[in-house]
Design a protein around this nucleic acid. Structure first.
Lengths: 338, 338
DNA sequence: TTTCGATTTGTAATCGATTACATTTTTTTC
DNA sequence: GAAAAAAATGTAATCGATTACAAATCGAAA
């Protein structure tokens, strides 16, 4: 191949600078191990040759990639966006890169990524999907890849995690609704078997119990975190003999669904009924009416988990393996005093 | 190191299966070049040893990574979520992986990623930020990395791109508003110097001109794609002697801002004024009222661009280097007949 | 059975960096 | 100015796969 087209290698630079490849490598990676004069010569040669190192060669030799894989069930899910930003920013600060695997909750895709993580494609793993990557086929024991789980802890595993203190947050929100004078407080749940959902519902009951109130099963509607189930829940409530004073939905999309459902039926929110959500996604504040909700510090969850992962990768001890970040109750216009 | 802990290599498998490393490599990569019996022996040995190939070694040898880098100005921007999903799905179908670089519009970060792309960290580049990655320092000519731009073409470059036919779409939406009987149609713009904005505004004027209407400068409000500027625009319109009949915002967030602004002032949408947006982000349909808007086929934009990139990477000719996808006008509840 | 071609397998070079260790150069100390 | 210590540089092995080329094996045809 034509010399001018061939990609320059480290020895092209070395030759041009009149030094050895070892020196070039050091001048680039650990500049202060090299005499200033030599360093300049190397830098000049790099510029002249247009040298760029070969990542694969370095990775092979050092057995490091400086990349981290985030396993996300759905990149298009608005909830993850800010978490990813927190991850991305933190990684960048520490000189790491982000690889994203959108699994679509498909086990086959999860397996594939688990395999690649093992293959040294990344230095660490961030699991946002609330479950372990499946062990690669052929159960032989493997050297573990550093892993942190976030948003949702993984029950029955000892993987370090970062999540919102869901139970406490749900309890706090329910208490706020009680303080506003509401007594018949409905609850729209997320999918069963979901650990987040479990925690949030527990928080809701905690608050009621603290007031000596038993949760009324008729006021608890099943949902699955989609807008549609929120609308359906509104319909269900409307068929009750007596409407609830307020409804707490375990995420924002369902809260919006409730608002749409009630509004469509001619009930205005918050005049006729108060609605609260959970998550504080982007458009909660922009909604009409602006949504009262539980603010999860999503980018901070991402940032904290990433810091922990980097500690793990670089062999430092973790201060704590289980982090519960407090959430903030944000009162907006979808709730009011009774 | 203890034999049982050391990561097994291809020659461990070869020894165990009683074949050469070449055969193992072939059995794994191109199974039908290998006798079924040998293949089975290799597969057995792989399972027994727990072998996983070393990605860096393969990448070094083959000079391929089967990974693609998507350069995004902001992963947390809801607009990109679905585009990323389209990218991710398509890549997966073709056996590629996704690396995401969130640049935060920071040129330094962009430079860094450009460098890494050159370094063979990925096989191709997907630019979602509407600009070229800066040429690495030291202007020497480089071998180009296959690149496709999407969502926003890059003016003054010949990089293949995929985008929505913005001008035609904006024109179509404006025409719909005219059909509904509206004549005083306001427009809230995106940031100046933005190529998308330029196209959309042109479409708006096209439609008016086709009816012999001149755009009234008083009805054109500056915005920057944020909710806040939408609200500000509502305030500005309210101070006019005569309100517009309808307002077309060049994205959904601003349209929502308009609705909030007008609603807060006691004007109801669409009774008092019709509002239309652009993009059809997730919550446009969930908004209250549900937003009339221009639906961009975001995941398809991602998918098409990705297909083109893979063609480029694998050395196939591109059928067309400039793809304009049609958009769909979605009439919902924020507009009505005059 | 022999021969020829096709199929399967093996040998060993190669990708391009990093780094242990050895060697040389420079600096410090007395 | 010599010896010792420290700093800078060089030599060459190494990371773990792929693959060109050579060699061996197999099957079919004669």
């Amino acid at each position: 191949m034509d010399e001018r087209l061939r990609k320059p290698r480290i020895d092209d630079v070395a030759r041009r600078a009149g030094v050895s490849t070892a020196t070039v490598s050091r001048a680039l990676a650990t500049p202060d191990q090299v005499k200033p004069k030599t360093r300049e010569a190397v830098e000049k040669a790099v510029l002249e040759t247009g040298y760029v190192l070969n990542v694969a060669a370095r990775n092979l030799r050092t057995n490091r990639t400086h990349a981290v894989l985030a396993v996300v069930p759905d990149v298009a899910n608005i909830f993850f966006s800010l978490v990813l930003r927190g991850i991305s920013d933190t990684l960048h600060q520490h000189g790491y890169r982000l690889v994203i695997a959108d699994t679509g909750n498909d086990p086959e895709r999860e397996r594939d990524h688990a395999e690649f993580a093992q293959a040294g494609w990344v230095d660490g793993l961030l699991l946002l999907n609330g479950r372990l990557l499946p062990a690669p086929t052929g159960g032989r024991r493997r050297l573990a890849v550093p892993t942190v789980s976030l948003c949702e802890r993984i029950p029955g595993s000892d993987i370090p995690y970062v999540e919102t203190a869901n139970r406490e947050a749900a309890r706090a929100m329910t208490e706020r609704l009680l303080q506003l004078g509401h007594r018949r407080i409905g609850y729209v749940s997320g999918p069963p078997n979901n650990i987040l959902e479990h925690d949030r519902f527990a928080g809701y009951r905690d608050a009621l119990a603290a007031r000596g109130l038993a949760p009324d099963p008729a006021l608890v509607c099943p949902g699955d975190y989609t807008l549609a189930t929120g609308e359906a829940a509104a319909t269900a409530y409307l068929s009750l003999a007596e409407l609830p004073d307020a409804v707490f939905a375990s995420n924002d999309a369902m809260a919006m669904g409730l608002i749409r459902g009630f509004t469509a039926a001619g009930l205005s929110v918050p005049e006729a009924i108060s609605i609260a959500g959970f998550d504080d996604i982007e458009f909660a504040g922009a909604y009409n009416p602006a949504l009262t909700t539980v603010h999860q510090a999503r980018s901070e969850i991402g940032a904290r988990a990433t810091t922990m992962l980097i500690d793990l990768i670089e062999g430092r001890q973790l201060a704590s393996r289980e982090v519960h970040l407090p959430a903030e109750i944000v009162m907006r216009d979808s709730t009011r005093e009774r």
